[in-house]
Simulated assay, not measured.
Amino acid sequence: MTHPRLHPARPDLAADHLEGIVEAERFVEPVDMQVTAGVTAIRREPRDDGPMDTQALFGETFAVLEERAGWAWGYSRHDGYVGWIDMAALSQSMAPVTHRVSALRTYLFSEPDLKSAPLCLLSMNSKIAAGERDGRFIDAGGRGWVFEGHLVPLGTHAPDFVAVAEQFVGTPYLWGGKESLGLDCSGLIQTALEASGINVLRDTDMQEAEFAERFTAIAVDAPRQRGDIVFWKGHVGIMTDSNRLLHANATFMATVSEPVAETERRAAENDSPVTSVIRIEG
């Protein structure tokens, strides 16, 4: 996809794999770095108050193309999203990940002891390089200890992405968020599907285009069922049954489940009808 948010190219600099495709003053081979903060913002500009477009979770890889005054410009290896990350959240030491967090959230402890000082919170789909076991805790590649009951090996998937999404009910709405303490509508979709073994793009417009190609579109006025994904311009939610929609939204500033008729009524008042309904099967 050539969307600017997924296109690591500027007039002065671009990723080397784009040479011959785009014009830039120079092309650079990315340097992979690993996120070692519990979560970190991918920002549009290299400053602490720069707009946050998305987030990177512990253990994910960020391909760095430029370092500038404590900031790294590049793209996420997870979903291709381009932006700036605070260098303090990254490490050049790469630990191959083996497990992901399956709980809504869990602590990264300083020692294999529930009474030890927590280093940070890890949200669902954070990834660790599992080392030795000590009691009920797993070493996270020398970066702390995680309760083993909150981890599953990579490749172990939740059977029902809707049930995963339902765990986020009550989570505050956060533009650009994809963590258990705050997320937006498309962040909820991406997170729930990843936990179920389906990797998708990040933003609503990207998801709608991608889903139309990968999955089954049904008529917007057709009867709906659990798991159907409903799109509006700039918004998306998941049907939990034939009548209710689960979505992170700015109306309630939270993830809520409500009658889809109410969602559609509010959207219609803003001249925003349903644009597509996608059924994810198989």
Rank of each mutant, 00 (worst) to 15 (best):
R5D: 09
L13H: 00
H17G: 07
E19S: 09
E29S: 01
Q34N: 06
V35I: 11
A37R: 04
E45R: 14
E45L: 12
R47H: 15
D48P: 04
D53R: 03
L57F: 03
T61A: 00
A63T: 05
V64D: 09
L65I: 11
A69D: 15
A69I: 06
A69K: 11
W71V: 15
A72W: 03
G74V: 13
G74T: 13
R77T: 08
D79K: 05
G83C: 12
D86R: 15
M87Q: 07
A89F: 04
Q92P: 00
V97I: 12
V101A: 08
A103I: 10
K115F: 05
S116I: 11
L119C: 04
C120K: 03
L122G: 01
G131H: 01
D134M: 02
F137R: 05
I138N: 09
G141A: 05
G142L: 13
R143S: 14
G144T: 13
E148T: 10
P153V: 12
D160T: 10
A165L: 01
E166L: 10
V169A: 03
W175A: 03
S180N: 03
S180E: 02
L183W: 08
C185Y: 06
C185V: 11
I189M: 10
A195M: 08
S196Y: 04
L201R: 08
R202P: 02
A209V: 08
A209K: 02
E213A: 13
R214Q: 14
T216R: 04
T216Y: 05
R224V: 12
R226M: 10
I229L: 04
V230E: 06
F231M: 00
W232C: 00
G234A: 12
H235W: 09
V236H: 01
T240G: 01
R244M: 07
R244E: 14
A250E: 13
T251L: 00
A254L: 03
T255C: 12
V256T: 11
S257H: 00
P259N: 09
A261E: 15
A261P: 00
A261I: 12
E264H: 10
R266K: 15
R266E: 11
A267L: 07
S272M: 07
V274P: 02
V277E: 02
I278H: 09
